[in-house]
Amino acid sequence: MLRSLSIDPDKCTGCLQCEMACSLENEGIFNPARSRIKVFTFHEEGRFVPYTCTQCDEAWCMHACPVDAIKMNFQTGALEVNEKTCVGCKVCTIACPFGTINYNRVSGKVIKCDLCGGDPECAKACPTQAITYVDSDATGLEKMRAWAGKTDNAQHAAG
């Protein structure tokens, strides 16, 4: 069964434990600036919204890559960047309409959420269950993909 990250902003307190856990797991340091999940703060509304890659099916990043460096891990459903193949051209970073694949100046490559290989640290670190790792059917993934559809350049004929 495919699982995915489910994010419930109503439960987020803005503690940034997810960013810390992500950065430690993927970069070996506690530095929220290097996290693949990001908590956005809405001061006026007093809200916090964690946000990361939705691992879309026909991923823009994957299709835009000129050197075939982004591939789906069929076990986890995550789109993963092959660091050895990525040349750091950044085309994926402008092609992804969600802004969730980003250039890392330190490595000269791009980084994105890879679901930590199927055991995402952000979900484990979240103290309020604003971020959970659950059966994909329950995440509203379809809803997220519907937004994604608004950005498609192609329109498929009905039927």
Partner: peptide
């Protein structure tokens, strides 16, 4: 700028 610039596409194309 290198972080989250893709949303500019998202906003424009949506």
């Amino acid at each position: 700028m290198t972080q989250h610039i893709g949303v500019l596409r998202g906003l424009i194309q949506g």
